[in-house]
């Protein structure tokens, strides 16, 4: 499947310790056909898994949010991305990763979409029919300042 999606992350350059750290995740469909993206493990569904790799001054942070065991997805777990269009998800990563210490934080999306379909009629796929698609989102940096 010659599909591709472009991914971009953005985050505030600086925040004060204790403030939210809102990361915007944007997927763009550069192809001429609509794509149907399972929102699991992406900020399109919120922060429900350890989807970011985050370091503070080089030390990896542990994830403290929820971890779900899931069965087959439903059709409403997919987000349609029209040709040339983008979809966005915003999450406050400070809810699940410890941003209370001042320092330089690097935030990377772990970099895959669990399932992407090219035909609306195909979705939802069952778990064993997923077509995973890696995406590369350039990582972003945020500095947390002492409050």
């Amino acid at each position: 499947m010659a599909t591709t999606l472009e991914c971009a992350l953005s985050a505030p350059k600086t925040v004060k310790a204790g403030e939210p750290v809102e990361v915007v995740f944007r997927l763009t469909n550069p192809t001429a056909k609509p794509l149907y993206v399972l929102d699991w493990h992406t900020p399109l569904e919120g922060l429900l898994n350890d989807i970011f790799q985050i370091t503070r001054d080089g030390t990896e942070l542990s994830y403290a949010g929820p971890m779900l065991k899931r069965g087959n997805p439903g059709a409403d777990d997919y987000v349609a991305v029209a040709p040339g269009a983008s979809v966005e998800g915003r999450v406050n990563v400070a809810l699940a990763y410890d941003f209370t210490q001042p320092g330089r934080y690097r935030i990377a999306f772990r970099g895959r979409l669990m399932d992407v379909a090219t035909q609306q009629a195909e979705v939802p796929h069952t778990l064993d029919g997923f077509r995973e698609l890696p995406v590369k989102c350039p990582e972003v940096e945020t500095s947390v300042l002492a409050p």
């Binding site: 542990s62 994830y63 403290a64 971890m67 065991k69 899931r70 069965g71």
Partner: peptide, 21 residues
């Protein structure tokens, strides 16, 4: 009451939330 099977918070042992599936 989510459609998932279950979830936990990794750092909150040993509470297991079980859901619809």
């Amino acid at each position: 009451t989510d459609s998932a099977y279950a979830y936990v918070y990794k750092n909150s042992p040993y509470r297991i939330y079980v859901c619809n599936a």
